[in-house]
Design a protein around this nucleic acid. Structure first.
Lengths: 213, 213
DNA sequence: GCTGTCATCGGCCGAACGGATGATTCGGCC
DNA sequence: GGCCGAATCATCCGTTCGGCCGATGACAGC
């Protein structure tokens, strides 16, 4: 190992930042070149510290979700550092989004120290690193791909989880009630349910709609 | 400060354990006497390390929830160490349960280092420490107390979020559909909603029912 | 013994829902 | 030009839901 891997930590939890710092600094061949609580100055920080790898939390802040992470990932220059996403959530669609947006790897926060260190090394070399549960789920998804809801359907689903009636949804979206029912029928089929309570449940569990109204 | 505060860390995330250790060891007047990934051997550990304070994560593992935490808190001897609960969730009922079960304080994981260290000192002396958002929510709750669902109502709610119809729920519980409707009416009133989709939404968000079926 | 809460059940009715079926329009794709 | 998915709308029909009324028994607390 000629040069140590330069790591930049982005996480809004001081505890987690300190933990990652402690674990990685103690490891051979890894240098933590900086940390930040959020992605606000990420481009600037990357330019100043020139890391090989950005280690980031998927969920930063309460209202902010994977979209933020995706924004950060995409804001990085193409030839820039690898991005390793670290999170406590393994059920979220955002995972997929982050990976599709170009994250190099994805790990859960309960990952053992040695695995994490190994992952940092491998991700820094451009290798894709996925946590066990995530990897297996992705594999499953390839085998039996979960149907994707269209934009309109997600919109309807949002109103559904808010507890609105078909008529209310129709009014909100300026479409007829018949159309709402039509969309709902498609949603039910895709989610594998047959009523709105079950759809609400599934939507919230899968993170298809925002958690907070 | 004659004697340093002896702290025991319980958290299933290696990263968090390392972070707390690093932050607390660096602070004056605090000694970390041990850590554990879960509460399995908590009584034994407490006996061996005689901590002044147990710093624990509310959510340990995926399936395990606040009940586990509560169990741990209650398993400790009365005159034992103070318990400071640390978590990423500030929306959960479990918070209340943990506090009611005897936790000395409650902090969110994004708490700044200095506040955390201060909280450890204060909690070790038996003082109640609550994170800002939590404290204000508790205050709110005192002002307009949220109605508590009865055991039966929670049971019904569970079936509701599973997407079952009234008739199905009735069959499962060996009661009549009329009774189910009666319970549902009470649930709606208590939750401030007027249909099952909204009730499902609220139940899942407030953590009134298990997250995974 | 009175009061309150909880759980149980019944009937009635209008509103909402879900399923089935078919149709139109529009845009992208080969 | 033909095909397809998406979004839109419509009609029909049986089922389910939610609101409203009232009722009973059990049990705890005062």
């Amino acid at each position: 190992m000629a040069e140590p891997v330069r790591v930049l930590i982005v996480d809004d939890h001081p505890v987690v930042r300190a933990g990652l710092r402690a674990m990685l600094d103690a490891a051979a061949g890894i240098t933590v070149v900086g940390d930040a609580p959020n992605g606000d100055a990420i481009a600037d920080l990357v330019a100043r510290t020139s890391p090989d790898l950005v280690l980031m939390d998927l969920r930063m802040g309460d209202g902010v979700d994977g979209v933020e992470a995706t924004r950060i990932v995409t804001a990085l220059p193409g030839g820039g550092p690898a991005v390793l996403v670290l999170t406590v959530y393994d059920t979220d669609q955002d995972i997929l989004r982050a990976i599709e947006a170009g994250a190099t790897g994805y790990l859960l926060k309960d990952t053992p120290t040695d695995v994490l260190i190994d992952a940092v090394h491998r991700a820094a070399q451009g290798e894709t690193v996925l946590a066990g549960p995530v990897a297996s789920r992705l594999t499953l998804r390839v085998r039996s791909p979960e149907p994707t809801l269209t934009g309109r359907e997600l919109e309807i689903l949002g109103h559904l989880t808010a507890g609105r009636t078909n008529r209310d949804i129709a009014r909100h979206l300026h479409i007829s009630e018949a159309t709402v029912k039509s969309h709902l029928a498609h949603i039910y089929t895709k989610l594998g349910v047959d009523n709105r309570a079950a759809a609400t449940s599934t939507a919230l569990r899968r993170g298809l709609v925002a958690d907070h109204p």
